[in-house]
Amino acid sequence: MEIIYSLRTLEFILLGLSEDPELQLILFALFLLIYMLTVLGNVLIILAISSDSHLHSPMYFFLYNLSLSDMGFSSTTIPKMLINLHAHNRSITYAECLTQVSFFFLFGGMDSLLLAVMAYDRWVAICHPLYYQVILSPCLCRCLVIVSLFISLVSSQVHCLLVSQLTFCINVEIPHFFCDVPELVKLACSNTTISDIVIFLLGIILGFLPASGIFYSYYKITSSIFRVPSLLGKYKAFSTCGSHLSVVCLFYGTGIGVYLSSTVSSSSRESMVASVMYTMVVPMMNPFIYSLRNRDIKKALWKIVRQIT
């Protein structure tokens, strides 16, 4: 007969990427470096945008919020993973797991929706340049961020509620490095049909719909660029959205990889590797992509460096 744990005393075991002590030491150093670079890079982007009046435009306003979201997204999983690797203790309490689920979908949803909003920003800038400031007014920009935050918050709380309604038995080992909802659903003893349906619908809202909006925006952008007569004009138009397109490919490419690997393969190893990419590597890469490909950001960062030194 299966033993059902009390929620007050329930603890999960995060199996993580490896049980080898020597490899765990290497992973600790690697993920600590990734986390430090993520925080440092995104903080510099935030400081650059805040301190330079030339960067007070809709595009950089959305980038500012994306950097905040990226830091929150990384902070949801990496610190707990570092603590477990350092202490050689892979447990996570029920309350900590629910908190992690909540913040994971809050910041993950924000990332997805903000990337869609930034695609809309590039569409307006390239296809309707004369009306850019009129269409993307400060009020609309704030509303778009607030709506993105609200949708992500609702999604995170629904996911948290779904997990809280699950009943867990004696097997509480999670083959992951964080409380991944699909893995939690697999461990549940209760009926998970409703949870599966709701998770699928939320995945459409936070994944498919923003991705479709991005695809449509770039379809219109590409059509507009092809109508530009000169090659130099085409290059300048497309270069304004090159950084965003790179981030989109990284985020959605690795995110889709997680779900494809979990569908095609029964092993959780491939899913974990893909999860490392979009939960750790992508938030770390975003500041570098935007700073290296953007002259205005580089100028603002050099001003900050000169002030510090």
Score class of each variant (00 low, 15 high):
Thr240Ile: 11
Pro229Gly: 09
Arg227Asp: 11
Ser223Cys: 09
Ser223Arg: 05
Phe215Ala: 15
Thr240Met: 13
Pro229Tyr: 04
Ser230Gly: 08
Tyr252Gln: 06
Ser246Phe: 13
Thr240Gly: 06
Leu245Phe: 04
Pro229Trp: 03
Leu245Asp: 01
Tyr216Lys: 10
Gly253Asn: 02
Phe215Ser: 14
Ser224Val: 05
Tyr218Cys: 02
Cys241Ala: 04
Ser224Leu: 03
Lys220Glu: 12
Val248Glu: 00
Leu232Ser: 14
Gly255Asn: 06
Leu245Ser: 03
Leu245Val: 02
Tyr216Phe: 12
Tyr235His: 15
Cys249Val: 15
Tyr235Val: 15
Arg227Leu: 12
Pro210Asp: 06
Tyr235Met: 10
Ile225Asp: 05
Gly255Trp: 02
Cys249Ala: 15
Leu250Ile: 04
Ser212Thr: 12
Gly207Phe: 00
Ser246Asn: 11
Leu250Asn: 01
Lys236Pro: 12
Val248Met: 03
Ile256Met: 06
Val248Ser: 00
Leu245Pro: 00
Pro210Phe: 09
Gly242His: 06
Arg227Lys: 09
Arg227Tyr: 13
Thr222Lys: 11
Gly213Ile: 13
Val247Lys: 06
Val247Asn: 06
Phe208His: 09
Leu231Gly: 15
Gly242Ala: 14
Pro229Glu: 11
Leu232Val: 15
Ile225Asn: 00
Phe238Arg: 14
Gly257Thr: 02
Thr254Gly: 05
Phe208Tyr: 14
Thr254Phe: 08
Ser243Ile: 08
Tyr218Phe: 13
Phe226Lys: 10
Ile214Cys: 09
Val228Trp: 04
Ser239Val: 08
Gly233Ile: 11
Ser239Asp: 08
Tyr219Val: 06
Ser223Ala: 13
Phe215Ile: 14
Lys236Val: 15
Phe208Asp: 06
Thr240Val: 13
Gly207His: 03
Lys236Gly: 15
Ser217Pro: 01
